[in-house]
Design a protein around this nucleic acid. Structure first.
Lengths: 197, 197
DNA sequence: GTCTATAAGATGATAGAC
DNA sequence: GTCTATCATCTTATAGAC
């Protein structure tokens, strides 16, 4: 995304990142501790500090990896090999995957709830994540309308805001009621709006 | 809402609730402490514990008051004196109010980000809040369609999910980028969808 | 109803041995 | 790279004087 080469990480660091990501997604950044990771992985807190000196370092590293992974997925789609709606469906897949778990939401959606309490590095990541995802969605929507596949009168940027905000909100609300329709309905209705039959 | 009579509270308790509400909305539940309130109000931590023995009590009381206040606003609208769209606009007003502040979001939207880490009492409040607001929105949408003011093909419940999720998501995203269009665009696009000219 | 004082535990973090 | 040991600080919470 930013062109930087990402350093390979050892097994332990990777496991810490995996768990940190899950803990933020399920409980939030301020509600988990190094002790939680220590217990779950069977290593001492000092070992975690060796890999990630401060909690803010860990949080930023989790965000960096998360963004890279999703960005690679977005950049990997070949627009000419799929319909625009299929591209959107591919984009929705991870959200639906989280919705199938009892309590995982988008990493940045969870962090947005405590945004002003986050370390500056992490705030930057969250802001950039939202920006790049909405911009990408706008390009797909624009392309789909240009090809005649989609029909809507608002600007692609505004439609992108609507569906992105709705996806983020849907995951959060879904977690509080366990009803997967919270997100499925949103996708279904959005489809009917941009692809009227 | 639940028919219970709410006890009047003294000045100090009310100030604690006011500040607690603001702190949750701006920083989240796990990121503020009794010390924060103590400092801001110029009282000792023990005094806060006198009014709200545990932090979970305080959180539940904040939620109870917040829900009652918004519920009263919803119950206070006279459907026969306003257009359905004007009723929705009235409903959107507090969201737009928060969006005009630098870092306030919906109380329950903030809490949703750390939902599994919340005390059970608070979880119940958040779940009920989302449920009752979506149900209320559905009735307004149904009424508007029945009267011919609105036009949409999905069920009112699904349309309610879309706009509610989008509002919650919009507030959270808006806080990360400071751009009020994040929520204004959502409302504008939604209006164009349900009220095609 | 507010205070002082204090407790018991968790937190993020560091030093230094192995 | 992981450990033991330790730190200073913050956290929620309580007892008891005023």
């Amino acid at each position: 995304m930013d062109g930087s080469v990402r350093k390979p990480r050892g097994d332990t660091a990777e496991k810490i990142l995996d768990l940190g990501e899950m803990l933020i997604q399920t409980r939030g950044f301020n509600a988990f501790s190094y002790q939680d990771i220590s217990t779950a992985l069977g290593i001492r807190k000092a070992s975690i500090h060796y890999h990630f000196p401060s909690k803010s370092d860990l949080g930023a590293a989790v965000l960096d990896r998360y963004r890279s992974r999703l960005y690679a997925a977005m950049a990997g789609v070949d627009p000419d090999a799929m319909t625009s709606w299929n591209i959107l469906e591919t984009y929705f897949t991870p959200y639906l995957g989280y919705a199938k778990t009892p309590d995982r939401v988008c990493l940045c959606g969870a962090l947005a709830g405590e945004f002003p309490a986050l370390p500056p590095d992490m705030q930057t990541h969250v802001t950039a994540f939202f920006e790049e995802h909405q911009a990408w969605l706008a390009t797909i929507l624009k392309r789909g309308r240009g090809s005649g596949e989609f029909r809507f009168s608002a600007s692609p940027a505004k439609m992108a805001r609507l569906i992105f905000d709705a996806l983020q909100g849907a995951l959060l609300v879904k977690r509080t009621n366990g009803d997967i329709r919270q997100i499925k309905d949103v996708i279904q209705v959005f489809k009917a709006i941009v692809m009227p039959s």
